[in-house]
Each structure stands twice: as structure tokens, then as C-alpha cells.
Nucleic acid binder design. Structure first.
Length: 201
DNA sequence: CATGGGATTGACT
DNA sequence: GTCAATCCCATGC
């Protein structure tokens, strides 16, 4: 069963870490989310910061809807719209661990190693065949759906750090990663690496 | 209507 | 480490 729309109708800073460990499914393949970032209209790194425009109106619409946009003219980036209707906010999904349909992902990406198939926001949309036409689509009815944490991911440890690749509001620790995953887009913040070293091997 | 800047990736020095 | 590719759209004249 997909996550219900009410899951997304909460503060984006609650939803972003809650989505780590959950599944993302489209076009025959599924991955487990291991990295997310939160974006909110109150801070300038968020596209919704400029208010309602043709580009951002999906962000201000009902929660539980996909926001897909083109980055650097090349890549599609996938977000889940959050907060009640009228508030512009979304969670960017930055990395997955492949779970089902790995050979399909390999064919789409032209790569073999599982940890490289979805280890970045532009990579996972390629592996899942998520394109701009899915902007505004319903994440409960599909075709893109998110599901609850599968077995083995119930108690995933989550670490927070600064967001990646932005120039505005870079200080906010609004990036959330599954501690220990090798499929994240960039290494964890230093504190997280220290936490990893501190645990039993 | 012209311009400039990205929530990135992969190839190359 | 550096850098180009490539396109949508917000902004300003």
C-alpha cells in the first residue's frame, strides 16, 4: 500500500527524515530512499521562495504530489510535495538503494554496480525512468508511488547535515541520510563519519 | 523579448 | 581538481 496523502500533509522537516528507509517505485523498479533534503518556501534555496508561478504552483498545491523539474538543462529531479495546500514545500529524493528491478536499472543507466545506479538525484530518476511529464502526478494513485519501510529498514539510523549543491541558505542542516548506506550521493558530514567509526564493526 | 542562473553528472587535466 | 553540456523559466528591459 502506498503512503497515504496525510503522510505528506505535515511539516516538511518531519516528512524528509521519515521518508528515509521508505520505498520509491516507478516503471517496474523499486529503491529504498537513503537520502533526502527538505525545501520550504521560507528559505531562498527553495523554488517556492519566489511565490506562486507557473513553475512553482505544484509546490503550493495539495501534498502527496510529485514535483519534477529539469536541472542544468539535463537531469530530472524528483520531489514529494509536503505541507498543507497553500504552503510551498517539498522533499527532494537524492539517493536510493536498488531493491527490485536491478537489471532494468542497469540497462537504463549503462552501469553494473548497484551502489552507483541511484546514488544521486539525477541518477535515480534515470534508473526509475521518471521524467518531466510526471510533474504534478499523484503519489498515492501512481504511477510513481512511495511505500512504507520494508523489512530490515524499520529502525534505520538517520543523520542530518547541510544540503548539497546549493548556494543559498547552505547552512541549514536539512539533508537526511541513512547512516551506513553506500548509495548516498556524497559522503556523510564529519559528525556522521565519527558516529560510524564509533560503532562496532 | 533577451538574458542569466541553476537542488547535476561524467569526462578530462 | 576543473569544466562543459543543455533547457526551463524568473526576471528585467
Amino acid at each position: 500500500m502506498p503512503l497515504p496523502a496525510a503522510f505528506y500533509a505535515r511539516p516538511v522537516l518531519e516528512v524528509a527524515p521519515a521518508l528515509v528507509g521508505c520505498t520509491l517505485t516507478h516503471a517496474g523498479v523499486t529503491g529504498v530512499i537513503v537520502e533526502t533534503e527538505a525545501y520550504h518556501q521560507s528559505e531562498p534555496a527553495c523554488h517556492a521562495y519566489v511565490g506562486v508561478t507557473p513553475r512553482t504552483h505544484v509546490l503550493f498545491g495539495p501534498p502527496g504530489v510529485a514535483y519534477v523539474y529539469r536541472s542544468y538543462g539535463i537531469h530530472a529531479l524528483f520531489n514529494a510535495v509536503c505541507e498543507p495546500e497553500g504552503v510551498g514545500a517539498a522533499v527532494l529524493v537524492r539517493a536510493l538503494e536498488p531493491l527490485r528491478g536491478i537489471d532494468t536499472m542497469r540497462a537504463r543507466r549503462g552501469l553494473t554496480r548497484p551502489e552507483q545506479l541511484c546514488s544521486g538525484p539525477g541518477k535515480l530518476t534515470q534508473a526509475l525512468a521518471i521524467e518531466l511529464g510526471l510533474n504534478g502526478s499523484d503519489l498515492v494513485a501512481g504511477p510513481v508511488t512511495l511505500g512504507p519501510r520494508p523489512p530490515g529498514w524499520q529502525d534505520v539510523e538517520i543523520v542530518a547535515g547541510p544540503r548539497i549543491g546549493i548556494t543559498k541558505a547552505p547552512e541549514l542542516p536539512w539533508r537526511f541520510c541513512a547512516l551506513g548506506s553506500r548509495s548516498v550521493s556524497r559522503p556523510w558530514p564529519p559528525e556522521a563519519a565519527a558516529a560510524l567509526r564509533g560503532r562496532a564493526a
